[in-house]
Write a protein that binds this DNA or RNA. Structure first.
Lengths: 383, 383
DNA sequence: ATATTTTTGATGCACGTGCCTCAAAACTAT
DNA sequence: ATAGTTTTGAGGCACGTGCATCAAAAATAT
């Protein structure tokens, strides 16, 4: 014998329509009969557009016009439908809607090209997320941009066709060109989301951590792990031109000055991704500061400067803090060559970006927009 | 003029069926014409059951029989259909399937009743997740169980009807009764998932952190934050009867002994949720150990023992580590009454549980099953 | 060879929404 | 009042899958 899957069917044998009528009627009557009404609601019946139409006293065609913002509907009617939406607590069945219009989500991640281990991790997680979200009809693709050339970024964004691309997560430093390009993109109906690098022009939508807090946390670890009360701290960065680096540095300094006044954070050494230069600046900094007690690498690529440092001196007595979970930093933590890592989980970053892009395209007021990416602290024991 | 939303429609004007035929044909021909085929795939067309039927040379009815594991299909035919699934890379459109069978997900969170702040946080996040996931037709509900009465838990689980309840996340200590009840539950077709408390019988499915690592991380923080090289550490727990507590303690001790041999972790003080008892044991421990340098509260309820401790002595020179993010621990971190908190993000716990329950009911081999809940370190600077 | 059983195919409705067309009704301007 | 315009309704197909029924074909037993 076959048992129908749906609970209500099996209970009552009634067709869905009749059941919904009953439920909607119950919901409309101000005095809800707690037990009965709640039970049925519990069984997860949701009002449909048909119910909405009935409640608002209009046709399904009109409901459709209102729901999808088509014009040619009198304001009075729009209001009536909206009232009914409120009254019934109607929410559109997104899966059905997507099915109907064959909506698929195709998201592009526009990332800098770089040999950076952190970026590789991000890319790995994008393809992983692509599989995870495949069931939700989400496709993700990585495109590389030249982070230092705003014009080419802007040109790239201009090529994106809303028919092909549902949304873009953009990891690029702020610049007027990029800001404008994002704006035009949105006008054309492509969702845009600053990713990891923030764009101050759109703070409501962005995915990434609080850099100030990240820097301050680095300072906390360094200061507290360090037994000495006095000494100087090396601060190394690939470049201080990006907002992220600046904010991290500011957060780091603030915490250092306030909590560990005896420790002196040296001016940032910039490597510009150039190994020779890195070697030069690190050597000279080490030579000039015999009272070193710690190192803070604030850019996402810690491998080059740290390797140089390990080769330059015995770092056992130094407290060493870096950013981002990468194969290098994980190993270094395990083997004690790093004392702490401040990280943002690449998996969360990617998944959060996908969820947000999806929410934007669905025009949902994303509850999930509150989801913040945590400033993670990694130690040897919790990798 | 109306512009069809679907890219292919707008490009070709062809009906979906014809397009799919073309694509599937391309996919079948071994030599894929890279450019053309990939472009069309890129536009996110997926083979449907109809395509499957055609590819396998059977009817849609038979495909349906195979896909849904109905019997009365010859092995030979089953194989052919499966081969076609492989060949086309068919994946079922879950949204359409759910729509067709009016599938809704109703998940029950079976949690201990308790005034615990951590549990309240969990519950808050459940209702929040309930809203977030509403668009995916997920409903969540919290039911309270008596964690210390395996029989009543088992009885409760026995009442769950698969027609009403799609799955259960269970937070209860391990016991034979509960294990059996979970087993029967699964047999009846209700998904079950150990939640935070782990059940060793089903390690493949569970949501929570690695308690050993959490304890070890607490030890790292305590040991490294502490300037003194010798002294004793108070360890306080509500009870040491749960596996979680035991594992945390083992991890803590292991790390302490190995890395901070000068520090002596005292035997666990158990409060049994009794304030008077807590006061008694804390007082006597403080009196008997004048060399205290730190405190580790390893249960999720840190408020009671810490408040007692604050009232008992000046704790400024102590390193204080506790578990879980709660209003109390957050405040304490901010005001310096706690030096570190080891936490598992309640939001992640809840969302991960929902995703896993959903994956189990969809019979998906959940890629997301790899998603681990991190052992988080909270300091004043990264709350 | 015939009767019986097993396996398959053909067909159709349902789910909830999008989007189309055509006609009817309700307004507005003359 | 009439013609024109705007607003609404009725109806239907589509999306991809689940599930049902009934008949046809194929395999098996007698």
């Amino acid at each position: 014998m076959h048992v129908p899957q749906n609970y209500l069917y099996s209970l009552t044998g009634l067709p869905k329509t009749a059941l919904n009528d009953a439920v909607v009627a119950m919901q409309r009557s101000d005095k809800m009969v707690e037990s009965a009404a709640m039970n049925v609601r519990d069984v997860m019946l949701r009002p449909t557009t048909k119910d909405l139409a009935k409640a608002a006293g209009v046709s399904r065609a009109t409901v459709d016009r209102v729901l999808n913002g088509r014009d040619g509907v009198k304001k009075h009617t729009v209001d009536r439908v909206n009232a009914a939406i409120q009254e019934l607590g109607f929410t559109r069945n997104i899966q059905a809607a997507n099915l109907a219009r064959s909506q698929r989500y195709r998201f592009v991640f526009a990332l800098p090209r770089s040999g950076d281990q952190f970026l590789s991790e991000i890319i790995r997680h994008i393809s992983e997320a692509s599989e995870t979200f495949a069931a939700d009809l989400v496709w993700c693709e990585v495109k590389h941009i030249d982070e230092n050339d705003p014009h080419s970024i802007s040109a790239f964004l201009a090529t994106l066709d809303p028919a092909e691309t549902t949304g873009v997560a953009i990891m690029a430093p702020e610049s007027p060109q990029v800001r404008d390009a994002i704006f035009r993109l949105q006008e054309r109906g492509v969702a845009a989301l600053p990713f990891i690098s923030d764009q101050s022009s759109m703070e409501e939508h962005w995915v990434g951590t609080n850099h100030h807090a990240a820097g301050a946390t680095a300072a906390t670890l360094l200061g507290r792990f360090c037994d000495a009360k006095e000494g100087s701290v090396l601060v190394i960065s690939e470049s201080m031109r990006s907002r992220d680096s600046l904010e991290r540095r500011i957060g780091f300094d603030a915490e250092m000055n306030q909590r560990f006044p005896g420790l002196r954070a040296l001016p940032s050494l910039e490597t510009y991704g150039d190994e020779e230069r890195a070697e030069r600046v690190v050597h000279s900094a080490v030579a000039n500061n015999p009272d070193l007690i710690g190192v803070y690498v604030l850019s996402s690529e810690a491998r080059v400067p740290l390797t140089i440092l390990y080769d330059t001196m015995n770092t056992d007595h130094l407290i060493k803090i870096a950013h981002e979970r990468t194969p290098f930093t994980e190993d270094a933590l395990r083997e004690g060559r790093l004392d702490g890592v401040i990280a943002q989980d690449p998996g969360h970053l990617v998944r959060s970006a996908v969820r947000k892009l999806k929410a934007i395209t669905d025009k949902r007021t994303a509850k999930g927009s509150q989801e913040r990416i945590r400033v993670e602290v990694l130690l040897r024991t919790n990798i």
